[in-house]
């Protein structure tokens, strides 16, 4: 198996001609995923942006075997494919789910949990654009605190809960491999994808994927936001590998939140005290993360 890296990506394109918005982070991650995994890949995409923009008859934008799953059932459809691969003794067929945050953290969480519990040999990628973008920017349980959506128009109602922690939810299933990644860090993402495809069991990648249309940012801000979300500490790059959590990038100090928040209209209107609250929440998250890292590193079970 050739190692996946930026330099090793083939020229072949497996995601072209789609109807995504300019600068779409999700479609960039999907394009990388297919380039890296290649022609034998079987991919399942539930209802959402990527299925809406990729499979409108007669325009088939994906170049591999691909299928739209019912919104709530990505994990189940992946299992069905994996079961036949097992039954027929087929090898080297990556089975990939590519679902948005709504299809993962909300309506598809049960089905994902089932697939993780069954220890299917699948790669489940959640591209997280932090709201229901395909239906017109409605709040999901992955919408960060303070973000405006069309169903949290002031941004205040989105303070109700903090963003669901999908990595911990996946790790709590005891699966071999789970990681976070960002569209701003392609080398890190591709390394994790490479690790995921070598895992004999389920792996889960939670990837930060800006949506210029839904976030109110410039179409060329996608990758820069994918970096500033990491330097501000809002999106820690993490790896859960066989019972141990590893913090891939632990900045000594965080960049000011404004470097990430200011380019996005969805955060416009946040008061100074609310931004302080976001920073405090981030700091608590990092304390917990570091504790988690110590705990799993020292664990005799790990």
């Amino acid at each position: 198996m050739k190692k996946i890296s930026i330099k090793m990506l083939p020229d072949d394109e497996y995601f072209v001609g789609h109807k995504g918005c300019g600068g779409c982070g999700g479609s960039l991650i999907l394009r990388w995923t297919l380039k890296a995994l290649g022609e034998r890949c079987h991919i399942v995409i539930p209802a959402g942006c990527m299925s809406a923009i990729g499979f409108i008859y007669p325009q088939m934008a994906l170049g591999v075997n691909a299928m739209i799953a019912p919104f709530a059932a990505t994990g189940a459809v992946l299992s069905g494919i994996a079961a036949v691969i097992r039954a027929k003794g087929l090898t080297d067929i990556p089975v990939v789910g590519f679902a948005g945050d709504g299809a993962t953290a909300d309506i598809g969480l049960q089905s994902l949990s089932g697939a993780l519990d069954r220890r299917e040999k699948i790669i489940y990628i959640c591209y997280d654009n932090e709201a229901y973008m395909n239906t017109g920017i409605q709040r999901s349980s992955a919408t960060p605190q303070g973000a405006r959506t069309t169903t949290s128009p002031s941004g205040q109602t989105a303070f109700a809960g903090s963003k669901k922690d999908l990595l911990r939810i996946a790790a709590a299933h005891g699966i071999p491999y789970a990681a976070t990644a960002s569209v701003g860090h392609p080398a890190d993402f591709l390394r994790k994808l490479d690790r995921a495809r070598q895992i004999d069991g389920p792996s889960f990648l939670h990837v930060f994927a800006p949506c210029p249309t839904g976030w109110g940012c410039a179409t060329d801000a996608t990758t820069e936001l994918g970096r500033s979300v990491v330097t501000t500490g809002l999106w820690p790059l993490l790896e859960w590998d066989h019972g141990k959590i590893r913090i891939n990038q632990a900045p000594h100090s965080f960049a000011p939140l404004a470097t990430y928040l200011a380019p996005q209209a969805r955060f416009r209107g946040l008061e100074a005290n609310q931004i302080e609250a976001l920073a405090a929440e981030r700091d608590r998250t990092w304390v917990a993360l570091r504790a988690w890292e110590r705990e799993t590193t020292n664990s005799v079970l790990a």
């Binding site: 299928m67 709530a72 059932a73 189940a76 459809v77 069905g80 494919i81 079961a83 069954r118």
Partner: peptide, 22 residues
Amino acid sequence: AQFVHVESEHSALALLMGSAAM
């Protein structure tokens, strides 16, 4: 046969669509 334990009926039928596609 592969006997797959699913977490709901919705997943049972969705899963079999994946298998049938294979």
